[in-house]
């Protein structure tokens, strides 16, 4: 029987990469769910332009047996309100998981983020999968992401006949439109004076590798997915070759708000703690159980974020 894999958020950068990798490897039918248009879509990929919260998403699961769901469609866009984020991430994820339970989907993969642990001064250097998800403590914008991750974790325990995998990759670099890549793409990169925490980054293609490994039968659980290693932010910026401008940390919230309002900064400044404190993870479980190992170097990851094709 043909494997039928549903990918939410397929028109995003990660979704497109994953769809291309999956459809190339043979006996699979790919169904993408995304409101956005999917440019240069491979001909045999089915793209449903629907909202994940709508009834028509349910029809995808109802009309045919689905062998796996890859939920890439979590929203993290500073231009949208917290309310929209909650609607999309919490309600959307909950409904998707409900469909999976109801229509007995044997494999569910949720791509969350290591940012759900939250950068905090008290963090141990290497957060394990059991660490509490405290990102919303200082950044309410991350609340819906934390909640979506928790929904998936509780689904993992509720739905024991299927295999649930939650991936928590570190900052993804590439042509993705996330905060980390946007940060390195700035003309002059703002840094906080006197702070230079260790950071982990991962190349977008390595994240796709991790998803492919998680699709293997028998894999279930929560996995931190880390890149090739940890370096201070200053090394990442040096690799990007961009000039920096230091801001005193006490002025940073105001400055970043001002820049956001003027349309000069790609983020609101609620994530400033990532420039202050560590939020690095221990990925030994993914190495041992998934057999995952990032193959792209830090240099390659930074290059991928700066490539102008985006």
């Amino acid at each position: 029987m043909k494997e039928r894999i549903v990918i939410t958020g397929i028109a995003g950068r990660l979704g497109r990469l994953l769809a291309k990798r999956l459809h190339r490897s043979g006996n699979r039918e790919i169904i993408g769910i995304d409101r956005r248009p999917f440019e240069d879509k491979p001909a045999d990929v089915v793209h449903k332009r629907v909202d994940i919260r709508s009834k028509r998403t349910r029809d995808v699961f109802r009309t045919q047996p689905i062998s796996a769901l890859v939920h890439l469609g979590l929203m993290h866009d500073p231009k949208r309100s917290n309310r929209t984020h909650n609607q999309w991430n919490v309600v959307g994820t909950q409904q998707l998981l409900e469909y999976c339970m109801h229509f007995r989907v044997p494999k569910v993969i949720v791509v969350s983020s290591a940012a759900v642990y939250g950068p905090r001064p008290e963090n141990p250097q290497f957060l394990t999968e059991d660490s509490p998800l405290l990102a919303a403590q200082d950044d309410l914008g991350a609340l819906s992401l934390v909640e979506a991750d928790m929904l998936a974790s509780s689904f993992f325990w509720k739905y024991r006949e299927g295999e649930t995998v939650i991936l928590r990759p570190v900052h993804i670099l590439g042509q993705v439109a996330n905060a980390a890549s946007n940060y390195l793409r700035m003309e002059r990169i703002p840094v906080l004076m006197g702070y230079d925490p260790m950071m982990q980054v991962i190349h977008e293609a390595d994240v796709v590798d991790a998803v492919l490994l998680a699709l293997k039968p028998g894999v279930r659980g929560i996995y931190n997915v880390a890149g090739p290693g940890e370096v201070p932010i200053s090394v990442l910026i040096r690799e990007s070759g961009r000039p920096t401008f230091p801001i005193p940390h006490l002025a940073a919230p105001l400055v970043s708000k001002l820049f956001w309002n003027l349309g000069l900064a790609p983020f609101r400044g609620t994530e400033l703690n990532h420039l202050r404190y560590v939020c690095t993870v221990d990925d030994s479980r993914a190495r041992k159980e998934l057999g995952f190992r990032a193959t792209r170097t830090i240099k390659e990851a930074v290059r991928a974020a700066l490539d102008d094709t985006y």
Partner: peptide, 28 residues
């Protein structure tokens, strides 16, 4: 735990090999 929140001091001590006092870090 409060040391990483001090500018310059926290980063400098990290470069010199000091760690945040958590049992996880020691175990590691």
């Amino acid at each position: 735990h409060f040391v990483p929140s001090l500018p310059f001091v926290g980063t400098t001590l990290t470069r010199w090999g000091q760690i945040i006092g958590t049992p996880e870090n020691c175990r590691h």
